[in-house]
Design a protein around this nucleic acid. Structure first.
Lengths: 244, 244
DNA sequence: CCCTACTCTGTACGTCATACGCAATTATTA
DNA sequence: TAATAATTGCGTATGACGTACAGAGTAGGG
C-alpha cells in the first residue's frame, strides 16, 4: 500500500480525527480558496505566501502547517479551481464528450492562471479525477478497453489545454511581450514581416493569403469545433473498427 | 506594419549592422546557449540571471543589454532548444506527420524543462515556426484549406505536449511531490486507495481492474501510437469528406 | 496535574530580478 | 584630427520572496 504524500492526504480529508495541541484555526480549503481569490483578482504572480496569509489573517509561516511548500499549494489550487463536471443525462458518448471538452476549455479560459500552472504531477485531486471519471464513464458503452478510454480522455484534455493556451495568448495577453503582440491580426503581421518565403514556404504563403489577418467572419469557436470534431471522428473511427 | 518587439527582432537578426559604442562582447545566441546548457544540466530552477551571466563570463546586469527580462530569455530558450524538423523526403502526409509528432514529443522528453516553460506567446521563433511550416507543407496536397491545416498542426502539437507531460510525470519526477508518487504503479496504487467507488465509478473500476498496476507488456510507446493514430484518423476522415 | 504533541508567530537568511548611474569605448560629425 | 553622441559592461542597491529555526502558547492523554 502506497504511502500518501501529506498534501494528498489533506486534499482527501484523510487526517486523523483527534489530535493534540491547539485546534487548527484554518484548514486547507480555506487557504486554497483565499489563494484562488487572489489569483482570480490579481493574477498568479500575486499569489505569494505573504499575500495568501494576509488574506486569511494569519502570519505567513502559519501556512506551512497545512502545505509543505508553495508548490504544493499551487497543486491543490489547480484542483480546487475546477468546477464539477457536467451531468451526463442520457446523452450518447459523442455529444457528452463534446460539451465535456468545451467546458474544460472554458474553465481554463475563465481562470487563465491555470494555464501558467504546469502540472508536474498526474492529476490526483478530487475535482480533476471526477472529470476523468465522467469521461471514462461516457465511453463505457463503446467497447473500447480501459487503456483506450483512458487515452481518449487524455487526448481530449490535451486538446482543450492547447486550444485554451492558443486562444488566450492570441486574445488578451498577460506578459509585456504578449501585450505587444496582442491580437491574431498583429501576430499575423509579425509573421508576414519576418518570414522568408524560401525557408518557410508553406507558412509564409498561408500568411500572405491572409490567414489570421482579415478576421471577417472568424470565430475562435468555429476553430475549436473543428479540432474537436477531428478528435471525435478519430474516436468514432476507433470504435467502429473491429476489436483486436 | 507592426513594430517588432525587441527580442523578436534579435531572434531574427534584425539588428542594424553598424552601431556606435563598444562592440558587444556577446550575442543573444551565446547567452541562450549558455542558459540551455544550465537548464539541461541542472534544471530550469538553476537558470538564474546570475548563473547564466557567470556561464558566459559577464556580470549579471550585462545580460539586460541583450534581453529585456528573464521572461524574454526563457522565451528565446524555448525556441532555440528545438532542433530542426525532420526532412519530408517523399513521404505521404500521414507517415510524415506521424514521425513529426513523435519527434516533437521526443524533444520535449529529452529537455523536460521545456514542459515547465509556459508559452505565453504564440510561437514566433525561427525554429518552432520551421516545424509548423513543415507540418503545413505536408498537408498541402490534401485539399484542406488554410485554417484546417493550421489547426490540424495545432492539434498534433498539443497531443505531443500532453503525452510528454504525462509520460514525464509518471516517469522520473522532478518535484518532491512527484518524487514521492513516482511511477505509474504507485500512482495507480494511490488512486485505488483514495477513490470512493460510489462517486468515481468508472475510474475506480478501471483501477481495480489493474490499469497502470501490472505493467506487464506495457509500453508507453504503444500508448502514444494509439493516441496518434486517433488523431491521424480524424484528419483522414476530414480529408476524405466532401469539401464544404 | 504534568507531559507531550501541535499550532502560530517573529526573526533571520539567502536568493533573485532588476532599477540606476558611471566609466569605458567606438562611430559619426565638425 | 578633435568633439560629440550613442552604447556597452559593471557595481551597487533595493525590495520581494520562500522558507529554516526557535520559542511561546494551547489542548488532549496519562
Amino acid at each position: 500500500m502506497a504511502e500518501l504524500p501529506p498534501v494528498v492526504a489533506r486534499m482527501w480529508d484523510r487526517e486523523p480525527t483527534t489530535r493534540r495541541g491547539p485546534r487548527p484555526r484554518l484548514d486547507l480549503a480555506t487557504i486554497t480558496t483565499a489563494a484562488i481569490e487572489i489569483a482570480d483578482a490579481e493574477g498568479l504572480a500575486a499569489v505569494s505566501m505573504s499575500n495568501v496569509a494576509a488574506q486569511v489573517g494569519v502570519a505567513p509561516m502559519a501556512l506551512y502547517r497545512y502545505v509543505g511548500s508553495k508548490d504544493e499549494l499551487l497543486t491543490v489550487m489547480a484542483d480546487s479551481a475546477v468546477p464539477p463536471p457536467p451531468e451526463r443525462g442520457n446523452l450518447p458518448w459523442r455529444p457528452y464528450l463534446a460539451t465535456w471538452t468545451r467546458l474544460t476549455r472554458d474553465v481554463l479560459l475563465s481562470r487563465p492562471w491555470l494555464l501558467e500552472l504546469r502540472p508536474s504531477t498526474p492529476p490526483m485531486g478530487p475535482r480533476r479525477l471526477l472529470w476523468l471519471d465522467r469521461a471514462l464513464d461516457a465511453l463505457s458503452d463503446t467497447g473500447l478497453d480501459d487503456g483506450q478510454r483512458f487515452h481518449a480522455a487524455t487526448v481530449l484534455t490535451g486538446y482543450a489545454l492547447t486550444d485554451a493556451t492558443l486562444t488566450h495568448s492570441l486574445g488578451a495577453g498577460g506578459t509585456e511581450l504578449a501585450a505587444r503582440a496582442k491580437g491574431a491580426t498583429e501576430y499575423g503581421e509579425i509573421l508576414t514581416e519576418v518570414l522568408d518565403p524560401a525557408t518557410y514556404p508553406a507558412l509564409s504563403a498561408m500568411m500572405r493569403a491572409g490567414l489570421l489577418r482579415d478576421s471577417t467572419g472568424w470565430t475562435e469557436d468555429a476553430d475549436f469545433q473543428f479540432g474537436l470534431n477531428l478528435l471525435l471522428d478519430g474516436i468514432e473511427a476507433l470504435i467502429s473498427r473491429p476489436a483486436r
